[in-house]
């Protein structure tokens, strides 16, 4: 009680700066949480009355998300390609945002990234031990998102060319946005949302009509979602690291991004590697220095800066 009184009566300790200081090493984490909540609400802002825009954003928003006000960039690319047009505008968005801000949208704005971070936090709360993925395995699995992106790109192009030639092509999720029809994030944000809140299940509505029994596909998707979610409790950002084609595309464009996380080797303690242990994307941070981290997996989340503000910082590369 005495301590509480002392705290309340001391104007110094009630200042915003002091409050931020009390957050100490979790300061960036807290700001990022605020940013993720803000973007989650705004990007799904149709329930607030915000108008839907035909704009491809450089984040992953499953296309059927009922309240989404923008298009997920990769979904837009697939949709435009499968309509028989090259997605210049959508790719341009990726090039510009990747070159300027790197994968900062993945870390600070993406709703699916927010879902992954939430699972990671829940896993820590219930003290689920984390798995350390070996560097070799990680390098292999990191190729999956780019492979998904390339396959989806080729498939959508083939569908688009078939449409231009006048061939009859079914018009459904598979032929329009093939990856999104199988995407576990889509199952969570769309399939389960429809089932729980609107009592519409794919078996009734005809989702995935080209793949045989809709309900079976929905069940299969749900199983994949549960597996990915459980694994995400043990491996932080599992979806972003090993499944997300949006992140792969943005990562490729962000190799020399203007905004980057930098490491000052002079302030580093040999063999400490606390920054690498804190990194949810398992980036080999100590391989980089003042020139900035140019690993395509870096989402500029700032966990490393929280852990070691002496050596790590946000910076501009030029």
């Amino acid at each position: 009680m005495v301590i509480m009184m002392a705290t309340v009566n001391n104007p110094e300790s009630n200042s915003l700066a002091d409050w931020l200081n009390t957050l100490s090493h979790k300061r960036i984490r807290f700001l990022r949480l605020l940013s993720q909540i803000f973007f989650f609400v705004v990007l799904n802002g149709a329930f607030l009355g915000l108008a839907r825009m035909p704009f491809p954003a450089p984040v992953h928003i499953p296309p059927g998300s009922p309240y989404a006000i923008v298009w997920g960039g990769f979904s837009a690319i697939q949709f435009i390609l499968s309509s028989g047009q090259f997605p210049f505008f959508a790719l341009g968005i990726f090039f510009i945002s990747g070159a300027i801000s790197g994968r900062i949208f993945c870390g600070w704005a993406c709703p699916v990234g927010f879902w992954q971070d939430t699972l990671d936090t829940v896993g820590s709360w219930v003290r689920i031990p984390k798995w350390k993925v070996s560097r070799r395995t990680d390098e292999g699995f990191k190729e999956i998102p780019a492979t998904i992106a390339i396959v989806a790109f080729i498939f959508s192009s083939w569908i688009g060319i078939s449409r231009l030639k006048g061939d009859i092509v079914a018009d459904n999720f598979i032929t329009r946005m093939a990856w999104d029809a199988l995407d576990p994030a889509g199952t969570l944000f769309v399939g389960w949302f429809y089932a729980i809140f609107w009592n519409v299940v794919p078996g009734d509505s005809g989702f995935f009509s080209n793949l045989g029994s809709d309900l079976n596909i929905f069940i299969l998707n749900s199983i994949i979602l549960v597996i990915v979610s459980i694994l995400s409790l043990k491996v932080p950002r599992l979806y972003c690291r090993y499944l997300c084609p949006t992140g792969a595309l943005l990562g490729y464009c962000s190799k020399s991004s203007l905004i980057a996380v930098k490491r000052n080797p002079l302030n580093c303690v040999d063999g400490c590697r606390e920054c690498e242990k804190a990194c949810p994307m398992d980036v080999p941070i100590t391989e980089f220095g003042l020139e900035g981290i140019s690993d395509t997996a870096c989402i500029a989340c700032g966990q490393c800066i929280d852990k070691c503000p002496e050596a790590m910082s946000f910076g501009i590369r030029i």
Partner: peptide
């Protein structure tokens, strides 16, 4: 990347 991005945005528009 910046040049390609601007060109693609203009083309797309």
């Amino acid at each position: 990347m910046i040049l390609l991005g601007i060109t693609f945005l203009l083309l797309g528009s």
